Amino acid sequence: MSGLVRWGFLGAGFIASKAMAPALREVAGASLQVVGARDLARAEALEPVRATTSYAEVCEADDVDAVYISLPNDAHLEWVVRALEAGKHVLCEKPLAMNAAEVAQIQAAADRTGLLAVEAAWNRWHPRTRRAEELALEMSGPRSMAAWFTFPGVPTDNYRLEARRGGGALLDVGTYAVAAAHWALDADVFDVDVASANVGSTGVDLTTTAVLSCGAGRAEVRSSFEQPESQGLRVESGDRVIDLGSQAFTSWRAPSELLVVEGGVGGVGGVGGIGGIERVETFEACDAYQLMLEAMSARVRGDDAWLLPLSTSWQVAATLDAIAAFATSN
């Protein structure tokens, strides 16, 4: 197709209203045609051409080319597949599904329909993340990495505290850390060496930590709903360190920096010691939600643009499954 890419949204919650709808308004050649939400007033607040309380109406609309889904995690599989089968390309919030088996079902539906299904892991479109991935791939020898995303407190009425709806810290913020482990170590598959979880009264993990290993090295990941607010991502090898700093995953509309240390002695973890040369790469303020929507809209039109592959989403989901299984059994 060519021309205007017409979007429909399923859900009008925080991310849809505060990030995605404003970002879409800045995308040339795209429009927000219809928003579906249980609360019609919330749908109308996103200023679409029209609003509805019916998710099915959005998926079946003749004037919609692509659907963005920001529903609770347990609703992702159903509505991704329904949108694909209705002839719509799909961009769905992370985690794409509750587990790797559900991601495989989404892959099958995308293959069957010949349409795009993409996980909206927005930080992967940020220029700093793209640069960090490039630098990590250049590293030689064994690598180690640490990634964490923690914050205290989730409202008691939020689905993130409901196990049956895909709640828990691992599936919410742990996806950032585990995805980073995959690209930092260029790993398709990880072994879970150690994993533990603190499960709250509602049955979801409030904190999960894990140590992962692959042929390229070792990764430590941590996610939490009960620890002080903190984010970090650091990758080390014998010849380089890269560190994304305190807003490792959520830099938004603000300048950002990437610390790189070259050389030094001491092997993995020793970079930055004797002889290490530091530099700071800077990145202008940008909206990675907008960059993601621009790329997705371009692909819907048939133009070239990078999108996160479904195979990567499956790999991350499989590692999340393995961490959860290990933590539950120990």
Results as ranks from 00 to 15, higher is better:
A86L: 14
A108I: 11
D63V: 08
T52W: 08
H126L: 02
R112E: 15
L96F: 02
L71N: 04
V49D: 04
D63E: 11
A100Y: 09
T53Q: 10
K88M: 03
G87Q: 04
Q107R: 09
Y55V: 04
A61S: 12
E102N: 12
A75S: 11
V64M: 03
V103G: 08
A120F: 12
E93S: 10
V81E: 11
V49I: 01
W125L: 03
E78V: 09
V80M: 02
K94F: 02
R82T: 15
Y55F: 15
R112G: 15
T53I: 11
R50M: 05
V80R: 02
K94Y: 02
A97G: 11
A120G: 13
I106A: 05
H76S: 00
A75H: 09
E47V: 11
V118A: 01
A110P: 14
P72K: 00
W125N: 02
S54K: 09
L91G: 00
Y68A: 10
E57I: 12
A108G: 13
A61G: 06
V58Q: 05
A117E: 04
V58A: 01
S70F: 15
P127R: 01
A120C: 07
H126Y: 08
A109W: 15
V58W: 11
L96T: 00
M98S: 09
A66Q: 01
V118L: 04
C92Q: 06
V81Y: 03
L77H: 07
I106S: 06
A45W: 13
N99D: 15
L91I: 01
P127H: 05
A86T: 15
A110C: 12
L71R: 04
L91M: 07
A100K: 02
A120R: 04
N99Q: 08
D62T: 09
Y55A: 06
A97D: 09
L116H: 07
E93W: 08
I69G: 05
V90N: 08
C92M: 03
E85H: 08
A86D: 15
P72G: 00
D111H: 06
K94C: 01
G114W: 10
L91V: 00
D62P: 12
I106N: 07
A104T: 15
K94R: 06
V67N: 12
P48L: 05
L115S: 00
Y55W: 12
A61T: 04
A75M: 11
V49T: 09
A97R: 15
D65Y: 09
S70H: 10
E60T: 13
G87M: 03
L71E: 11
R82G: 05
C92N: 12
I106L: 06
Y68H: 08
V118S: 02
L91F: 14
K94T: 00
A56N: 07
E78M: 06
C59M: 14
C92P: 10
A108Q: 15
L77Q: 10
A86M: 14
P48R: 07
R124K: 08
E47Q: 14
M98Y: 13
W125D: 03
S70C: 09
V90Q: 06
N123G: 09
R50Q: 07
W122P: 13
V90A: 05
C59A: 15
E93P: 08
A51D: 01
R112K: 13
A120Y: 08
H76C: 02
V67D: 14
L77W: 02
H126N: 14
A117S: 07
E93K: 05
T52H: 06
V118I: 14
K94G: 01
M98P: 11
R112N: 10
D62F: 02
V81N: 03
A66W: 08
V80Y: 05
A101W: 10
S70R: 03
